[in-house]
Amino acid sequence: MEGFLPLYWCVLWYAISLPVVAYGAYKMNIMIKENREILPLLAVSGAFIFVLSSLKMPSVTGSCSHPTGTGIGAILFGPWITSVLSTVVLIFQAVFLAHGGLTTLGANTFSMGIVGPTVGYLVFKTCRKQNVNLYLTVFLAALFADWFTYIVTSIELALAFPAASGGLLASLKAFMGVFAITQIPLAIVEGAVSALLFKYIVQLRGDVLLKLNVASQDTIKRLQEASI
């Protein structure tokens, strides 16, 4: 939220996020130079992430919340590209929907665009190596991407406002407790939706996943046959 972090922390998170996003942009530039068809595809995917995160999720507790959507991005495009896409998405969210803000952009990019997708991507890669079912893998990746996004957000808030008694840890516990109420069920819902989303993509356009190197030909064929 705009104005919540003091100036010092805003600058610090910008300084941490900027090199990562710059490297992502550098990698993206190389990809676009090699294959110019990729720019429109990245653009529509970014727009998809924006729309997905602005849709209200059905939430178990009755309240509606917004998903992060970056777990799916990380699975499809890898963490570097996702960091650039989510930075642009975050700017749009701030300007169009008044979610997040411009001074807190650095901190939001770090939690939602860098740590979340990286964790999701690592979970995805590890599970794929262990030959875990693809849908379960997607579920876990989206789940952990979401949780880590909010753990890092809590850390950012706790660092900026450590408690007088108990210091950083006490403050961290309090912020995590507040976020946990909404985020633990929400992340599970987001994971389930992401897994189902993958099911439809596999059934209808398995070749897209193949092209993005998300799953091998055999896996997709097996899953398509299993669902018929």
């Binding site: 720019l39 429109p40 529509v44 819902v189 389930a192 099911k199 439809y200 993509i201 356009r205």
Partner: peptide, 23 residues
């Protein structure tokens, strides 16, 4: 939940096809 997943899935596929035609 199922509707939401179908919506996101179809949206992704439509987005992807738009992107392929856009170039």
């Amino acid at each position: 939940l199922n509707s939401h997943a179908i919506l996101s899935g179809v949206l992704f596929l439509r987005a992807w096809e738009q992107g392929e035609r856009l170039i």
